[in-house]
């Protein structure tokens, strides 16, 4: 495996004095698919917001590609990371304009070939002039994924991206994520509470409970020979609080 793109040391995040995340040490490797699983309220989304530089940690150090992440971080560095959320919000514009949005932010123009390629991959060719906010939930999530990937980020963060989707949409989303990782070596951090999805996509899997990193290891080992009893219980689908 390559070198770490993210490195977290003693990172804590507080909301109103309540500690929601407390990670001693975590590295995300360049080009890997890392799944983060755990019950709701474990701090998974908070971690993703830190990785997307949407907020700064309360204490500890977070580095991205060797540079300390902060609010003043260069916009070019920040733009190397994009995220897809559980509930995607479309811009009240056409599907086309939503695809183009990332390019517009970067002052670039989306080429016709690239646009066509993505519409093809998403199965949205016929809908390109439709108002994006009138699409179905599955179509919106596909557009959201394309909108985040079309600018070819180095890191893609996924926050429960398929939680509300039907199996066909889930399969398509997973296929595209896998392709991007294999073809472009895009680093992917996937937050999910669906252990099967983690097993299908991730090379490594981590368990987060109450803001603490319980275990992080190869996905195979995570599911077959977990080191901690908590992981074993979570994998078995038992309730652990």
């Amino acid at each position: 495996m390559g070198q770490a793109i993210y490195a977290l040391e003693n990172v804590q995040q507080n909301y109103d004095g309540r500690c929601v995340l407390d990670i001693e040490s975590l590295s995300v490797m360049q080009g890997e698919v890392l799944a983060i699983v755990g019950p709701s309220g474990a701090g998974k989304s908070t971690l993703l917001r830190l990785l997307n530089f949407l907020e700064a940690p309360f204490s500890g150090s977070l580095t991205f590609d060797g540079e300390t992440a902060s609010a003043e971080m260069d916009i070019e560095q920040r733009r190397r990371v994009t995220m897809v959320f559980q509930h995607p919000v479309m811009l009240k514009r056409s599907l086309d304009a939503n695809l183009h949005f990332g390019f517009a932010l970067r002052g670039e123009k989306l080429s016709e070939e690239l646009r066509a390629e993505w519409l093809q991959r998403l199965g949205l060719m016929g809908l390109r002039t439709q108002a994006a906010n009138k699409l179905s939930a599955g179509e919106m999530q596909r557009v959201a994924l394309a909108r985040a990937l079309i600018v070819e980020p180095d890191v893609l963060l996924l926050d429960e991206p398929t939680a509300n989707l039907d199996p066909a949409n889930v399969a398509l989303m997973e296929k595209i994520v896998r392709e991007e990782n294999e073809k472009n070596h895009t680093t992917i951090v996937l937050v999910t509470h669906n252990v099967f999805q983690a097993r299908r996509l991730a090379q490594r899997t981590a368990l987060l409970i109450d803001g603490k990193l319980i275990e992080i290891t190869d996905t195979e080992q995570f599911f077959e020979q977990p080191e901690t009893e908590q992981t074993a219980a979570f994998v078995r689908g038992e309730f652990i609080y």
Partner: peptide, 23 residues
């Protein structure tokens, strides 16, 4: 939820404000 998602796609503060205006 939109402002967070727009920033997650790489918008500066100014671009965010402009996008919100357009929305």
């Amino acid at each position: 939820m939109l402002p967070l998602q727009v920033r997650a796609l790489g918008a500066t503060r100014g671009q965010l404000a402009w996008t919100m205006l357009a929305e």
